[in-house]
Amino acid sequence: MSVRLPGPERRDSILKAAQRLFSEKGYHGVSIDEIARKVDVSPAILYRHFKSKQMLYDAVLQAMSAQRESYVQTIINSGTSFEDVLTGMTQVYIKSISDNPDLLRIELQSLLDKNPAASDFFKNRWKSFTDYIEFSLNERLPYDTPNREVTILTAALMFQGMLREVLLQKHLQPQDRLEDVSLHELSQELVRLFLRSVGIEKSHLSRRAVING
């Protein structure tokens, strides 16, 4: 016998169950019936809240974007140098995934699902990084850098790939050889290596720590 819940709570519980299932099985791997069973309601009740699977999926994305990471705090609190901002953004992003690893799973599922709503949603999240890296390198790289435009685009992609891989390894595929290295350490080192690869030495870290402390 299902428990009667008030509308908003029912809606919330459906969203939570749907997020879980979509993250485990992808958009096409989940049916409305399965989600309804998980929250112990009839499909008819579920359809009263969400008219279709696509609308439910969109609502899951919407709910996740409401918790979208804000980089405002990073900008206010840290220095404005490329190194400081990139370090701060990376920490914020890592925290948002650690708080809700379903985000990472749904992102990976959506890459193969080819769902336009999801694809826009995740593209937009990464765009914060790629925009920032492209814009900053465009300001910093000498104009006579060979293949300048492609270098800048590749650098942004490289960072996205590195960060996503670190999160993947830590959250979805725990490996023994990485067991003793924390996510925080991995991400710090990742930023340092990235900066070095684009010709920027990260020299302000200790100074910044003193200022912020």
């Binding site: 980089y71 405002v72 990073t74 900008i75 901002v85 953004m89 914060s128 925009d131 920032y132 814009f135």
Partner: peptide
């Protein structure tokens, strides 16, 4: 055309 945090920065 720019995403957060660029406008704020």
């Amino acid at each position: 055309g720019l995403n957060c945090p660029l406008p704020i920065l």
